[in-house]
Write a protein that binds this DNA or RNA. Sequence first.
DNA 1: GGGCTATATAGGCGGATGGCGATGTAACCT
DNA 2: AGGTTACATCGCCATCCGCCTATATAGCCC
Lengths: 118, 118
Amino acid sequence: MPAIELELAPKTKRPVGEPCCEPIALPTVDGAKAARLARLAKVLGDPTRLQLVDVLRSHAGEVCVCELQPLFDIKQSTLSEHLKKLRDAGVVGVERRGLWAYYYVNPESLEELSTWLS
Amino acid sequence: MPAIELELAPKTKRPVGEPCCEPIALPTVDGAKAARLARLAKVLGDPTRLQLVDVLRSHAGEVCVCELQPLFDIKQSTLSEHLKKLRDAGVVGVERRGLWAYYYVNPESLEELSTWLS
DNA sequence: GGGCTATATAGGCGGATGGCGATGTAACCT
DNA sequence: AGGTTACATCGCCATCCGCCTATATAGCCC
């Protein structure tokens, strides 16, 4: 991931013989930010995880894993791994109470991506 | 991807002996929409592609591939494959003029995801 | 402690993904 | 036609991903 720091070359092209275009580009996003945004997009890039985030988000409070489980026809371990990925990316948090784990969305975690997209 | 169509169960849990919770859930996003959104997020889930979209977007018009190439230290074939994925997802379009290919972003393609995120 | 429950982790497997070099295609020029 | 350029596609390889089964962890109840 190179830093992008220049201005894009003009669109009028040189004749074929000459070197195509020495590039000059402009960034709104440097490498580090692109990496953060892509990491977030990647974790949302699975339908099950996206729907998990959606359910958690539309449900204002916390949701027990045992309530999430029946919404998806995947095994419990698979669901747990999806939740782990979301946790690792900071998209969701957990609170354990007794036997149960309650998940919730960290809304700030989605902000940077949401802002960049719009 | 099962359809999610019910209401989430109340958060007060049953005593341990009983079956955990018969689930009732609520969707803002059905399976098909989740699949579309996830597909889009997935294609943005690579730092190079995300930065490509960013450069194309911040550049109002069309950008020649030869101008994109030097911004990334990847081989030409790799860049071409990234652009293909973006094309296949409908995120970008191309127009060929002579030897050159000019890429541009389809802003509508990002709308659904952007809306869902915010 | 022993048995049961809810969730997490480990290990394995097949398929997808990202990178590369090599080759293909098509436009341009002489 | 032959040579050159810009871009796309192919074939390969190493890694990653999502899924599973099996097992571990930890809280509750007797």
